[in-house]
Design a protein around this nucleic acid. Structure first.
Lengths: 136, 136
DNA sequence: TTAAAATCTACAAAAACGATAGGGTAAACT
DNA sequence: AGTTTACCCTATCGTTTTTGTAGATTTTAA
């Protein structure tokens, strides 16, 4: 299940992308437009900024704005920052690999084999989609 | 993230499939072989039985056994019983559809559009794999 | 007919996680 | 200076996951 964090983050990004201007957009405006708890969205935008997707400006006329062009923002990157691993099991994760403590051998593990395919399917989709693709 | 319930369920199924005999296998044997909490596994096997994947026999010499041939057990069915919806968002789920309360229009929703593709990718994998494919 | 070996059932507790709110701080603008 | 906004930390509430406890029920076998 997709977390609301990811869902809201994606919606905020697409909202910012749909606005042509590079002018900062206030949290409150995004929250209102997308029906999101403002305080929750605040923390989400913060992590998006910390991870190089957004820039921010304080004070009057401040807000958040896209730091790259929508065509240059890949869904793989967004998903990894917001949702975490793309793989459903750590032992098939490219960026968050971890060995399963209960599994003696990954090469003969059925779960591993299946989830590897699922991961590849998801990766294919995320690599095929940029932020620009989502708003068109 | 895949729940342990699903992971353990899959491992139990593959263990049963890897054993040729139709003889009942005790919970304790499966739990030991797969490093699973026995009591937790017990409840998992129960739901697998209630959903037509396993048969059981009580008393001495009892246990669980596959009710169908591994080639006839599709991963879509297993995943839906153990993990629930295959889709990451209810609004793109085939079997567990639900409207998002915050989203005014699914047709213009970026999350919807992206997650639809992800769901299709996952479905493709699950439909392509039976229990027999996982043990070979 | 008794004992042992199993599954079945219902809770309950603990742990982890997700989502949200509160309140204060720091920076930018007028 | 005062207003406006992002920034940051923490606490809380609710749900889900995972595991455990205790016992009832069924079957087999001595």
């Amino acid at each position: 299940m997709l977390s609301k964090k990811t869902k809201y983050g994606l919606k905020a990004l697409t909202y910012l992308a749909s606005i042509d201007t590079k002018e900062p957009v206030q949290i409150s405006e995004i929250a209102k437009h997308e029906n999101i708890s403002q305080k929750f969205l605040e923390s989400i935008l913060l992590t998006l900024r910390r991870n190089g997707f957004l820039g921010s400006k304080k004070g009057k006329g401040g807000g958040y704005y896209l730091i790259k062009r929508p065509e240059d923002i890949q869904m793989t990157a967004v998903m990894r920052v917001l949702e975490g691993p793309i793989a459903m099991v750590p032992c098939v994760s490219l960026n968050f690999y971890e060995k399963c403590d209960d599994c003696p051998d990954e090469n003969t593990c059925a779960v591993n084999r299946l989830m590897l395919q699922v991961r590849d399917g998801a990766l294919k989709v995320y690599r095929n989609n940029t932020l620009a693709d989502l708003i068109s």
